[in-house]
Nucleic acid binder design. Structure first.
Length: 872
RNA sequence: GCCCCCAUGGCGGAAUUGGCAGACGCGCACGCUUCAGGGGCGUGUGACCGCAAGGUCGUAGAGGUUCAACUCCUCUUGGGGGCACCA
């Protein structure tokens, strides 16, 4: 018998739509759901980017995730499993420009098509909750989020070298630069000085790091975030700087994690960006040369700076000397681009004997190399260094600190620093602030205006003497001193005024000329109608900010919106959020390990601090699907011609076969190459399952009880019953653990057994259809109705297994002699050591192996094996 | 360079967490089926020796711990991912 997937899929899907079975209600207790724990369960998949087509990767993400969602639902949870579109962003805009279509038209056309494709999957999405981030009703709240952060003092404007992609003609966040190249178009990224808006994610570094520990996330993902945050403990040291021309004292702060090596410091290096260069302008004898060096360094792209890593460059600041606070030694100061301006203090103490980079530099510039760490102590003579010894060891030539281990020395030296006012312990992070402004059209406008009048107001309020300078800590901390009229964001960014909440959204104008510009200005700047506005604070003439937001801002809070997608007054109702959030299970690609997942965590924490949400982490559990490769083992791409089109597969094999095969083909987080024949196995299985369930008597191919070589009673009755209950247990546990492949194989084993040894008992038929339901929801529905199910099988409760029926009476006792398997026999489960020993030793096989040997001992593992060990 | 992960038949992958390696599926081989082509069913399928019973070898390689290692430890090789002059 065959089932025609085309007919039953349409039929089932129409029935689901008609009955509204997947409509999600906020109420915890629902009569139309299977009785159970009646808990709400928020299950989320990463919403797709409307690229134009649902590809197999989307299917691999969404189909097994839907198996999980359906299982949770049948287990009695009120499941929210929503879907939407991450619709703003560069790729859509670029694609639209290429086709000479307006980005909005392109995006919404794609969404319409992909929505249709998504609906054919038959997942339990509640389409009434769909969100599109490019809808004004959505980005109104993206803008609200921006202002929320702005008003909390977490947004600031900075003119600084930014990652500029010349092809996309916009700046990029650090996270979007991969190996010195643009993440999207692979152009070499250059540094360009532009005024930019940044989010102070670094304020949250410690919490973003610490809270990772409690998350049920893949360890690898957590490790990547830890790595990205890059916490390192060390010390800041003040080096006194003296100039030969003028006798003025300066101090230069350096950061080091290897304070124990300070007696080996033979020079200092500062980054080209370090402001001390400008400050000491008049004292540097070779200032022209230094400036020339800095200019060339600036011109280098990140890529070049990395590529040229092997050849160190730099220039000495002539006429300047620094003094080591520990021993008063005088050391030269260099500027070199191997020191980064944005990390630590932008200056390092160079210890060539114990740092590879310093070693190279010292070799090139013929600077002294002084060893202060030896592997052992006391050591008569430290070996001559051929390269830097970077490990910890024991101190030598370090005055009072000689003999200490590196770890001890770091402690003692830090104490010394603090006592002598020459520095202190410090923690540094690699994490940098999140650059969110984009000079592009297709994004949410930044809801700020610039007002000259208000700028003066802020400046005379003397809270911020140096407008545009570094953020003053005192302002952030002086809550009481902030005048009512200006928010913290407005004080930190003089002249920048928040658009009133009631005026949101600041609509993205429908301009014709949306092409990006070369000079680093947003296309919106060309629209006078958009730019010209009134200041919401003073009513005077003002200009709108014309940059738009990075799309990652849109996706940093979307999971909140699904709980209340139509709300006009709030981004989501607090009660509704409490009902659903945080997300219990989040499923999506590992490529978002840092970007999206880190940003979302940051947003959640910021909202938590303002008591807008009651939780600190957005996603309690996280699972990644693997990547499906082409059958050639390569990444799928049109140019390679190895793309697998899910629509074609669905047409041929049906939705159920495709989703079940995706479950079965690999370990879920692994992915792997696509085997074009593989899906046949699952397709055959479903056909066979349909046939087996449909027959109530032993069929033509089903053997009657007893024929499989088992005692009649056992084969016909107990055995499949036991296996059935074992399978219920296994299937549930496997789905819970995202082991979809073994869950499917368990079902296959059950059906093989039903086919070979027994016939399906009527009372078990419905039960078995339920086991099939999460994997093959359409077929299960069809069979369910066919055999008298009145409502949907998806409103049924997941079957409970009978503990007593799982228990085996007998087991196969493995018999080993000296650790090698020599025999096996069926034995009752409760067999004792003595009984087992007696039974096994008497057996011919075992006797043979024990001949002429003396038994030393026996190892007995109840229910498993017995190992007879002979004297050797 | 640093960090993380992985390595099991011709292929995808199982293995109750130290206890029968290779479940389940693909593929392949042979057979059956009034079956014309990618259908259905049955049997077999890690390698080697053997008609068989059975035996030897076998989880990238080399050591080690253990009565017992795919599983734990050390080293080596190969592959994947992340970070990358982060002081």
């Amino acid at each position: 018998m065959f089932y025609d997937h085309r007919k039953i899929e349409k039929k089932a899907q129409n029935a689901w739509v008609k009955s509204g079975i997947y409509k999600v209600r906020d109420k915890v207790k629902r009569k139309d759901l299977p009785a159970g724990r009646q808990e709400n369960f928020y299950h989320l998949v990463m919403f797709p980017y409307p690229s134009g087509n649902l590809h197999i990767g989307h299917w691999y993400n969404f189909a097994p995730a839907d198996v999980y969602a359906r299982f949770k639902r049948m287990s009695g949870f009120n499941v929210l499993s929503p879907i939407g579109f991450d619709a703003f962003g560069l790729p859509a805009e670029n694609a639209a420009i290429k086709r000479k279509i307006h980005p909005r038209d392109w995006t919404y056309k794609n969404i319409a098509f992909m929505r249709k494709q998504l609906k054919t999957m038959g997942n339990i999405y509640d389409w009434s909750r769909e969100i599109i981030t490019a809808d004004p009703g959505y980005y109104k709240w993206t803008q609200w989020m921006f202002l929320y952060l702005f008003n909390r003092g977490l947004v600031y404007r900075k003119k600084a070298p930014a990652n500029w992609c010349p092809s996309c003609r916009t700046v990029l966040a650090n996270e979007q630069v991969v190996g010195g190249q643009c993440e999207r178009c692979s152009s070499a990224v250059i540094q360009k000085e532009i005024e930019q808006w940044l989010f102070k994610i670094t304020d949250y570094a410690e919490r973003l790091l610490g809270d990772l520990n409690d998350l049920d996330w893949p360890e690898k993902t957590k490790a990547m975030q830890r790595n990205w945050i890059g916490r390192s403990e060390g010390a800041n040291i003040k080096f006194e700087v003296k100039c030969q021309r003028l006798n003025v004292k300066y101090f230069l702060d350096v950061f080091t994690t290897r304070l124990d090596t300070i007696f080996g410091c033979t020079y200092l290096v500062i980054a080209p960006e370090n402001p001390i260069i400008e400050n000491l302008k008049l004292k540097i004898e070779n200032f022209d040369e230094v400036v020339r060096y800095i200019e060339t360094a600036k011109k280098k792209t990140d890529l070049m700076r990395t590529d040229l890593a092997k050849e160190k460059t730099g220039v000495e600041l002539k006429g300047i000397k620094a003094f080591n606070p520990f021993n008063g030694e005088e050391v030269p100061v260099f500027v070199a681009d191997y020191v980064l301006g944005h990390y630590g203090t932008g200056a390092v103490m160079a210890v060539p004997a114990h740092d590879e980079r310093d070693f190279e530099f010292a070799r090139k510039f013929q600077l002294p190399i002084k060893q202060v760490i030896c592997e052992f102590y006391p050591e008569p003579k430290c070996p001559i260094l051929e390269n830097a010894f970077e490990e910890d060891g024991h101190l030598v030539a370090s005055g009072a600190f000689d003999g200490l281990s590196s770890a001890e020395a770091r402690e003692k030296m830090a104490e010394w620093l603090e006592k002598n006012g020459a520095g202190q312990k410090t923690v540094n992070y690699k994490l940098r602030d999140w650059l969110v402004s984009r000079q592009r059209y297709w994004g949410a406008p930044i809801p700020l205006v610039f007002c000259e009048g208000c700028k003066k107001q802020v400046e005379i309020s003397n809270f911020h003497p140096s407008a545009g300078g570094p953020i003053s800590k005192s302002i952030q901390n002086s809550k009481s001193k902030i005048p009512n009229s200006f928010s913290r964001g407005e004080l930190l960014n003089p002249g920048w005024i928040a658009v009133l909440e009631k005026s949101l959204p600041v609509k993205l104008p429908d301009i014709k000329d949306y092409l990006p510009t070369d000079e680093g200005r947003s296309p919106l700047a060309r629209s006078e109608k958009f730019v010209k506005t009134k200041c919401p604070k003073c009513g005077g003439a003002a200009k709108r900010e014309t940059d738009t937001m990075d799309t990652f801002v849109c996706s940093s809070w979307y999971y909140l919106r699904y709980t209340d997608p139509k709300n006009l007054k709030k981004f989501a109702d607090a009660k509704k959020m409490k009902t659903w959030l945080p997300v219990k299970m989040y499923v999506g690609g590992a490529e978002h390990s840092v970007l999206h997942l880190l940003y979302s965590r940051f947003f959640t924490k910021a909202l938590y601090d303002g008591k807008f949400v009651g939780f600190k982490e957005p996603f309690l559990s996280l699972r990644h699907q693997g990547t499906i490769l082409g059958s050639d083992g390569q990444k799928m791409s049109k140019s390679r011609g190895n793309v697998v089109d899910p629509d074609v597969l669905v047409k041929e094999f049906g939705v159920d076969a495709v989703r079940m095969h995706l479950c079965f083909m690999s370990e879920y987080s692994q992915g792997g190459p696509w085997n074009p024949h593989g899906i046949l196995g699952v397709s055959r299985f479903l056909q066979r399952a349909a046939t087996l369930i449909s027959r109530s008597q032993p069929g033509k191919n089903g053997k009657a009880a007893g024929q499989a070589g088992l005692p009649a009673g056992q084969a016909g009755d107990k055995c499949p019953d036991r296996l059935l209950h074992q399978t219920i247990k296994k299937t549930g546990e496997d789905i819970e653990n995202f082991k979809f492949n073994t869950a499917v194989s368990g079902l296959m084993i059950l059906f093989n057994e039903i086919e070979n040894r027994s016939y399906l008992k009527i009372k078990n038929r419905k039960l078995i259809i339920k086991l099939l339901a999460p994997f093959a929801p359409h077929l299960a529905e069809e069979l369910w109705r066919k055999f008298g199910g009145k409502k949907s099988v998806h409103a049924e409760k997941w079957p409970a297994y009978d503990k007593n029926k799982i228990i085996e009476e007998n087991f196969v006792l493995v018999v080993q002699v000296d650790g090698k398997m020599r025999d096996s026999l069926e034995a009752p489960v409760g067999i004792s050591r003595d009984e087992a020993e007696k039974l096994t030793i008497a057996r011919g096989n075992v006797k043979k192996w024990l001949e002429g040997k003396e038994i030393a001992k026996t190892i007995f593992i109840p229910g498993k094996l017995i190992n007879i060990v002979t004297r050797r």
